[in-house]
């Protein structure tokens, strides 16, 4: 189950979208999320769908992977559609079944809202599919840069995010090890009454915390030994680079925005 869920997973590649500056991707997605709510005609929805689909295709990620990966979300989208279909009572009745009457208004609104929902999810998952978490972190650090002036700890925040990313797999492995060790001492994580199962978490959590603290302490020591003293005077190896490709992307997106306002009714 968890392996088929693609939201938040990175798929390595070298497509146009992969190569875009993560800041470009974040900025475009941010504004895309805003303008989706301005669409109100078939043409304007068509335009946005075309843009999203075009982006998805240019990631070169297989379509069936995308569709399967969004499976858990399909349920929500269909549910949204049905909700509107049943509840909205505007326009004419176009179909009736037993005591239910379905209105054209409901159909249109249901389609529009679930399309919006779908577009939002598709576009945001394109970000995580084509951008490594560390690139996103870098982009956030860079985009929040101006906040340094008001003493907002931008660098520290970014470092925290990147260290968390680094240690997630390590802590997952550790969790597995400890739960096996405790299972060998007779702890039952899977069966039994809920109360017992909640109690069974203690022998797992305490060692995990103890080890996380120990790791943090040792990591801090190692970082200090390697000359870490905060963001001041630090240089960076990873560099974000806005290039010609990004300018094209912005240009295309501005065209989409203009197109959207022309095609709105």
């Amino acid at each position: 189950m968890s392996s088929s869920m693609i939201i938040g997973q990175y798929v390595p590649g070298n497509s146009v979208i992969h190569r875009l500056d993560p800041r470009t991707k974040i900025a475009i997605i941010f504004f895309f999320v805003l303008i989706v709510f301005f669409a109100n005609s078939v043409m304007s929805y068509g335009l946005l769908t075309l843009f999203a689909a075009g982006s998805a295709i240019s990631t070169k990620i297989p379509a069936n992977y995308l569709i399967k990966g969004l499976l858990p979300v399909w349920f929500l989208i269909v549910f949204t559609f049905l909700l509107h279909l049943f509840v909205t009572k505007e326009g004419e009745v176009f179909f009736s079944f037993l005591s239910f009457e379905f209105y054209t208004g409901g159909l249109i609104q249901g389609l529009a809202i679930s399309l919006r929902f779908f577009l939002l999810i598709l576009v945001t998952s394109l970000l995580t599919l084509t951008t490594t978490p560390i690139e996103i972190t870098d982009a956030i650090e860079s985009m929040l840069g101006p906040l340094k002036k008001i003493r907002f700890p931008v660098h520290e925040l970014a470092l925290m995010m990147s260290i968390s990313l680094r240690f997630i797999p390590t802590l997952m492995q550790e969790t597995e090890k400890i739960s096996k060790a405790q299972a060998s001492r007779g702890v039952d994580f899977r069966t039994g009454p809920v109360k017992e199962r909640i109690k069974a978490v203690v022998p797992l959590l305490v060692p995990l915390f103890v080890s996380a603290f120990k790791r943090a302490e040792e990591l801090a020591m190692a970082m200090e030994a390697r000359g870490y003293q905060g963001g001041e005077g630090r240089t960076k190896l990873r560099e974000l680079h806005t290039g010609r490709l990004d300018i094209y992307a912005y240009f295309l997106f501005v065209l989409v925005i203009i197109g959207l306002f022309i095609t709105r009714s």
Partner: peptide
């Protein structure tokens, strides 16, 4: 399985990590 686990004790690598 549970009674097997009582009869076969396992000392894992770095077993001190299981103390709580």
């Amino acid at each position: 399985i549970k009674s097997l686990r009582e009869k076969a004790g396992v000392v894992f690598q770095y077993p001190e990590h299981q103390l709580f």
